[in-house]
Design a protein around this nucleic acid. Structure first.
Length: 632
RNA sequence: GCCCCCGUAGCAUAGUAGCUAUUGCGGCUGACUUGUAAUCAGCAGGUCGCGAGUGCAAUUCUCGCCGGGGGCUCCA
């Protein structure tokens, strides 16, 4: 007999050699039905695995990440099997689960077509119907090589394994090198859809052979697949590139790929975010500077960008000298810091800069406002002593949170530690990383660690915000920099009266970039901006021509107080103008006619078909100003 | 940059190796003067992304370029 302990702490005796699935059945038929994979102590095991020892035991379903991962991974194997059936010559590489679903990378003599995708999907469904079991094979390396002899990529992977032993999974005639675990049978995958084709490189390196990647999603029932497809549709409707055009926020032109043109309404969003940023930064004790966007090559050599970042920099010649348009704001900021002697009493010195930077991003990576070649970073450089790091970080995290909350964003924090290639001493990295960690803890926040993902010049904190569709975006960042102060020989005068102490420096952003942040906001709000931010706060609709004067009178009064107001005086039906007002996503739509003129009122409704009723025009103005002021 | 897909009026679309290139929205003009999600009629708007090639003939086929979309981090 063996004893298994369940997550609730209870334990139960079983016959030796019982399978994980049988254990699940003993707990409940529903669990057995939903079960995907199990965990014995710290090892994930197939449901068909025979258990021969005591241990902590847990069953995972699609609800848990472990279950989802296994499920998607199995779907990817079914894809590989389908590909092998349809195209026997195909070479298999890898096929992992990813956040959205799964993919498999193939090496095939010709490019896949969308029809191939359909065929593959049909074949997968057939395999699922056939209810083929996943059989695990534990074999020696050379045995595995025999089984995978016509698969060069697999052979390469087998050779790289540290272990002598390796595992393969077999379903029917198909065998694939795989660590596992897998679902017991292909029939478990109830709903599957192949979503896209893409190019990818073997081992993610552009120098290697280009492979074809097939992406798909898989779910335990059709309903969840449909929900997923619905979410995709919703995301498509919210696409900031489409809304940006429909709402007249911004545009892109062939003549300037990657460089956004801001239209009046989009620029209003931009300026409102900047105003808010300035107000809040003032409260936090920041000063604001502005540095030139074109700077001489000598500066970029000093900062190290010329060597490490030249590929991404726009270069220009002035009076026969090399200049670069800045890709980052820091070197200019360094020059300003160095202009005079700084006292320890000034520290931490918080210097903000809304800096317009240009980066030559690869053409294939451009994506609306999400990835552009010119953008404004809401940058700041903070100079301080080593002792001040922790408290400054805590303060910054709270500050960042305050800003994100204004937009209803939840967020999570990632801490990235020392990468392989880095500068500075072990001790420096240890103290600075620790300071960041302590700073996060003191702010009372949870965080994830990204081992080795820091910049070469220091550890960093990244903020990932979660939008209304549950998608995450990296926005804010706090980076400790041990390189710039050294390169630029920054100093401050300490209590000892000597101007030779080196300050610690951080670079940080909160929005990340105004452009990207606006792109995220457009999708987050689906274009329905909160009143304080909205480019079209009020639209007034006169019922007929003869009431237009009244509408303009109100508009003028509102405009004088800073309300963003438009009048739709077209001789169209009121229904039509209401519809257009809603499509323009004006927060409030005011209808005025005979009755309103008599009483000096406006008839108020919202863009969401909500009728609010009549109010005196000046009273409604007061209400608007109050709401705007409270940033509702 | 690389791979796949795409490019027809401001936007969204149909279509074809061969007569004046389709439709809807939007725009303009006129009529209607409208009371809460589309009033009616008419008109204008396109070198079918750009360049080259093949053909009697190219928006359609081929090649190149430009631009857009998806992907190129997730590891048997």
């Amino acid at each position: 007999m063996i004893k298994l302990t369940f997550p609730d702490g209870k334990s139960k005796q079983y016959k030796k050699g019982i399978t994980a699935l049988e254990v699940a059945k003993s707990i409940g038929p529903r669990l057995a039905q939903d079960a995907i994979v199990a965990k014995l102590d710290n090892e994930l095991i197939d449901l068909t695995t025979k258990i021969n020892k005591n241990g902590k035991f847990q069953i995972f379903t699609f609800k848990e990440p472990e279950g989802r991962e296994t499920f998607k991974h199995s779907a990817s194997h079914i894809l590989a099997k389908a590909a092998k059936r349809l195209f026997p010559q195909i070479k298999l590489t890898i096929g992992p689960a990813v956040e959205d679903g799964f993919y498999y990378d193939f090496d095939f003599k010709r490019a896949f077509t969308p029809e191939d995708l359909n065929k593959l999907e049909s074949e997968m469904k057939k395999i699922i119907k056939e209810d083929i079991v996943f059989e695990r094979l534990d074999v020696k390396k050379n045995e595995a090589k025999k089984l995978q002899k016509d698969q060069p990529y697999k052979l390469e992977m087998i050779d790289e394994l540290g272990d002598e032993q390796c595992t393969l999974y077999k379903h029917g005639k198909f065998v694939d090198l795989c660590r596992g675990p897998h679902v017991p049978s292909t029939a478990k995958i109830k709903a599957v859809k192949l979503t896209k084709l893409a190019g990818a490189y073997w081992r993610g390196d552009a120098k290697n052979k280009q492979l074809q990647r097939v992406y798909g999603v898989a779910f335990p029932d059709k309903k969840e697949l449909n929900q997923y497809l619905h979410l995709l549709e919703e995301a498509k409707k919210r696409d900031h590139k489409k809304l940006g055009r429909d709402l007249e926020l911004f545009s892109f032109h062939d003549e300037a790929p990657g460089f956004p043109f801001w239209h009046p309404k989009g620029l209003h969003l931009y300026n409102t975010l900047v105003d808010y940023w300035r107000t809040e930064h003032k409260k936090e004790g920041y000063v604001e500077i502005s540095t030139p966007i074109i700077l001489n090559k000598t500066l970029w050599e000093k900062s190290g960008h010329w060597k490490l970042y030249k590929e991404n920099m726009y270069l220009t010649k002035i009076d026969n000298q090399d200049y670069s348009i800045k890709p980052m704001n820091c070197p200019g900021g360094m020059l300003m810091y160095k202009e005079r002697v700084h006292s320890y009493k000034e520290l931490p010195l918080r210097v903000g800069e809304l800096g317009l930077v240009h980066r030559h991003e690869l053409s294939g990576t451009l994506n609306g406002l999400f990835r552009v070649r010119a953008f404004t970073q809401d940058d700041a450089h903070i100079f301080m002593t080593e002792k001040q790091i922790q408290s400054e970080i805590t303060r910054l995290i709270k500050f960042t949170e305050r800003i994100y909350k204004m937009f209803g964003f939840e967020y999570k924090i990632e801490l990235s530690t020392r990468p392989e290639k880095s500068i500075g001493t072990d001790k420096q990295w240890e103290t600075t990383t620790k300071a960041l960690e302590e700073g996060i803890k003191k702010a009372g926040k949870q965080y994830y660690i990204n081992e080795g993902d820091g910049a070469f010049y220091g550890p960093k904190i990244d903020f990932h915000i979660r939008d209304a569709l549950n998608r995450t975006w990296q926005c804010g960042t706090i980076q400790l920099d041990m390189s710039m102060p050294e390169r630029f020989k920054l100093t401050y005068m300490g209590e000892d009266g000597e101007d030779k102490h080196q300050p610690v420096m951080i670079h940080r952003t909160i929005y990340g970039s105004l452009e990207r942040f606006i792109g995220i906001l457009v999708e987050h709000y689906a274009g329905k901006f909160p009143l304080w931010l909205s480019p079209t706060q009020v639209r007034i609709l006169p019922v007929a021509d003869r009431f237009a004067d009244y509408a303009y009178k109100i508009a003028k009064a509102y405009d004088a107080k800073g309300v963003r107001v438009e009048v739709d005086s077209r001789t169209e039906s009121i229904s039509k103008k209401v519809r257009d007002g809603q499509l323009a996503k004006a927060n409030y739509i005011l209808v005025v006619g005979e009755q309103e003129i008599k009483k000096g009122t406006v008839a108020i409704r919202t863009r969401d078909n909500q009728v609010i009723g009549a109010k005196k025009a000046d009273e409604f103005l007061k209400q608007l100003l109050k709401e705007i002021n409270e940033k509702k």
